[in-house]
Design a protein around this nucleic acid. Structure first.
Length: 467
RNA sequence: GACCCCAUCGUCUAGUCAGGUCCAGGACACGACCCUUUCAAGGUCGAGACACGGGUUCGAAUCCCGUUGGGGUCACCA
């Protein structure tokens, strides 16, 4: 049997990181088994579903490189089919019309709550004769749920979960306006799409029981379930807006690399021994349902950041330059020249280990593209004392004579200079750093000299001495 | 409230299904040190957990029961 999984978000907002992880798990499981991963938009709530949300979800999936097979299924386009399924149940006497008004149902719920009994529909129209039906009320269609016994779910994560059928009432299949409910749509679509494995959030565990009843009433094979614990915020509650960034796009904007978010997300709630950092290929090879955790996991930004550091260090220099060039141009108010791009690329190996996030990489890159005379910040200015300036003036004369300007010649010259003067390298490196970068923090000083080149370096030194 | 799920360092987790090799391993974060021209990166070391109480057993983080704690779900929303 070919494995078919699906990701079925309702397009009512951004792609939530929890949903992204669900999508990732489904994708990994399908790819691992050489099966299919399908995308279905549960957009039957026309009030809340928006096209913006649809594109946000698609953009998010694309950014994370989660590709789906076949076309996108829009649940809203399948309403006729859903209604047809309900009609079949009606014909087979497995469902019935319910003429309760919303007010009547509200009363029923309130009463049940007061009594402390489960809040369920009492089935009053299940056996009532249709001739008693009020003419002014258009009915809903409800399923005849088993009155006794148990519904058992074999879940790959939670194990065997048993529900007493008395806890499961006759749910609505078709609303009074004839539109299908979520419960019906999901079952019909999962069946029609040939879904074999439903991997989704823990919050659907209760629904799995109701859906099982529907599957059975329809005589369809119940898919296998894997209910994954939800992602919690730092306080231990379901991750929501009040915890800060919950949308994938927010992490994209904050400068996380997609492969970092992916790696972090798979590892959150799933494990493969002590492996922490691994490639997508490895994840596909290793992923299984047996090693999904059973308890909820908290979203830990520190950890994500650490993973991001790992991937930034391993990212191609060209790719990083490409990622930062637009924002860099905006920051310095002009387009980048070829020279800038060359210097940036040359500097990347030095810049990468110093940047946890893309915005930080941009900050750390700025000194390279600034035009002379560069701005010297307060801390750096303090290092440029009179003594320091005269040191730099001397040093400039030495560097001036260098024919070859590369890291080793520059280093030899400077080390030779400090040895001769019997001073510490730091006493010249720090003022030099201040003059060349305008800051007290930068890559290694020899690297900086090499990145900037002879002309620019000596120019900046002379600016610093004059200032 | 009813129903369902969960419970190992602050956090993510290995180990739990097939009890002994676990006075519990790794990673993040934290602290110290090393390296060192600044800041990172890197390296070494350190502190840090089986929620509690009962069983079962020669032996329990691992099995059973209970308690406590946390979470989720209870719509003509998905």
């Amino acid at each position: 049997m070919t494995v078919v999984t699906r990701f079925a978000p309702s397009p009512t907002g951004f792609l939530h990181v929890g949903s992204a992880r669900t999508a990732l798990f489904n994708w990994l499981y399908a790819r691992h088994h050489g099966g299919k991963f399908l995308l279905r938009l549960e957009d039957t709530d026309r009030k809340r579903s928006t096209e913006e949300a649809v594109s946000a979800i698609i953009d998010g999936l694309r950014w994370l490189n989660l590709d789906w097979d076949d076309g996108i299924v829009r649940q809203s386009e399948r309403m006729e089919r859903h209604a047809e399924v309900a009609q079949r149940l009606l014909k087979e006497s497995k469902a019935y019309h319910c003429y309760c008004t919303p007010e009547e149902l509200a009363e029923m719920r309130d009463a049940a709550r007061e009594r402390g009994s489960p809040v369920l529909y009492d089935g009053r129209w299940r056996y009532r004769d249709p001739s008693e039906a009020p003419t002014h009320v258009s009915p809903t269609v409800r399923i005849k749920s088993p009155l006794s016994g148990e519904t058992v779910i074999k879940d790959h994560v939670q194990g065997t979960v048993t529900f007493a059928n008395q806890q499961l009432d006759d749910m609505v299949l078709l609303r009074s306006d004839g539109t299908p409910t979520y419960m019906l749509s999901v079952v019909a679509d999962d069946h029609d799409m040939g879904v074999t494995h439903v991997i989704r959030g823990d919050d659907h565990l209760n629904n799995a029981a109701r859906q099982t009843i529907l599957f059975q009433a329809l005589g369809w094979t119940v898919p296998e379930f894997a209910h994954v614990p939800l992602i919690h915020g730092a306080d231990g509650a379901k991750l929501s807006k009040r915890h800060g960034a919950v949308g994938v796009e927010a992490y994209r904007e904050d400068g996380y690399l997609p492969e970092a978010l992916r790696n972090y997300l798979v590892r959150l709630g799933w494990s493969h021994g002590d492996d922490e950092l691994f490639t997508t290929e490895q994840a596909v090879e290793w992923f299984d349902l047996n090693h999904l955790g059973r308890g909820a996991a908290r979203f830990d930004v520190d950890r994500l950041q650490n993973v991001n550091v790992h991937y930034i260090q391993r990212a191609q220099d060209d790719r990083l330059v490409e990622m930062i060039r637009d924002r860099l141009a905006k920051r310095c108010g002009r387009d980048l020249r070829d020279r800038d791009l060359e210097r940036l690329k040359a500097a990347m190996p030095e810049l990468k280990p110093r940047s946890k996030l893309i915005p930080e990489l941009i900050e750390n890159s700025l000194f390279i593209i600034h035009d002379r005379p560069i701005e010297i910040d307060e801390k750096a200015a303090k290092l440029l004392t009179l003594d320091a300036k005269s040191l730099l003036r001397d040093l400039a004369e030495v560097l001036e004579t260098l024919e070859d300007w590369n890291q080793s010649t520059v280093e030899t010259a400077i080390r030779g200079y400090v040895a001769e003067k019997e001073i510490k390298l730091g006493s010249v490196a720090q003022p030099l750093r201040a003059g060349l970068t305008g800051r007290t923090i930068s890559p290694g000083i020899f690297e900086v000299l090499t990145i900037l080149g002879k002309e620019e370096s000596l120019g900046r030194m002379s600016d610093a001495v004059k200032a």
